[in-house]
Design a binder for these strands. Structure first.
Length: 290
DNA sequence: ATGGTTGCTTAGCAA
């Protein structure tokens, strides 16, 4: 019996688009909604050791600042800053120690409205000449609810924040859980998700307005036609059935986005015991001179 | 069949 061996033709049909890009001289930014830092601590540290991201943005850390394990993260090679609260929400930015201590740290939207929910932290990473934000956009629960109104309002406020605090001609990465699937091919079944808080035209328009600041959806740029997901509900075997949606995004201004070489979702991190319901998104960029 | 899972907090909410 002849053993079927992969040929050059069959190998290329597995990967039709192109060969692996050369990632030498790049740095990697990742974003991961961990759904509780405490519950995900062992997974997180294993992932950091394995992937060694230069920057990692976390969401839903669900931990107060006083309890945030900055020392422990420093022990595994990362500076870490957090904007947290008890029980809900909470965001953080980790950066490799070699890139220097994050500076110009900003928490919240800084627009005078009461900032009762910890959903935004931003900082500059000196060694990468880069500003980074970790973002957790409100889910909105159900269209028409108070939380839905709050989601749309929060997105408006975030756009104002960009206009006020950032410049599209500077290299910036806005990473996080946006709770919005930009297009129908970002959900497993558009009919199931139609007019939900994830896909509603008003939510998509708000994301579009954000991007009109001058932002590139890095994954969609690298994978124009993919059905690539970042979140699968814990219920109903959604992950093994791949009933997912793409709501976690690495958005980049042009000076950064044009340097993007590769983007992928680490589905491995969604497997096994006690995963987050989100998988990490990773993006590689050519180093920025200076 | 009007469910289902997880986390935080302990009965109900949020996702």
């Amino acid at each position: 019996m002849a053993v079927q061996r992969p040929t050059a033709a069959s190998a290329s049909s597995e990967r039709p688009s192109n060969s692996e890009p050369d990632l030498s001289g790049t740095f990697m930014i990742a974003t991961w909604n961990v759904n509780s830092l405490r519950m995900r601590w062992d997974r997180l540290t294993a992932w950091l050791a394995d992937k060694r991201p230069d920057v990692l943005c976390l969401q839903e850390i669900k931990i107060q600042d006083a309890d945030f394990p900055a020392l422990e993260l420093h022990g595994v090679g990362y500076h870490a800053i957090a904007h947290g609260q008890k029980t809900y929400n909470g965001v953080a930015i980790l950066s490799r120690i070699e890139h220097g201590s994050p500076i110009d740290v900003q928490c919240g939207l800084k627009d005078g409205d009461p900032d009762t929910e910890a959903r935004l932290i931003a900082a500059t990473i000196p060694g990468l000449s880069l500003r980074v934000a970790s973002v957790y956009v409100p889910n909105g629960q159900v269209v028409g609810a108070d939380k839905w109104t709050y989601k749309l309002r929060w997105l408006q406020r975030f756009r104002s924040y960009l206009d006020r605090e950032l410049r599209p001609d500077q290299p910036i990465a806005l990473c996080g859980d946006y709770n919005i699937a930009p297009a129908d091919h970002d959900v497993h079944d558009p009919e199931v998700w139609r007019d939900t808080v994830i896909c509603h035209p008003d939510a998509r328009a708000a994301l579009q307005t954000l991007c009109e600041f001058g932002l590139i959806d890095t994954l969609r740029r690298v994978h124009p036609d993919g059905r690539i997901f970042t979140y699968w509900d814990y219920r109903g075997l959604s992950f093994p059935k791949n009933l997912g949606i793409r709501i976690d995004h690495i958005l980049a201004t042009a000076p950064l986005g044009e340097r993007c070489r590769k983007v992928e979702v680490d589905r491995q991190a969604r497997k096994g015991e006690k995963p987050s319901d989100h998988a990490p998104v990773q993006a590689w960029f050519s180093r920025i001179p200076g």
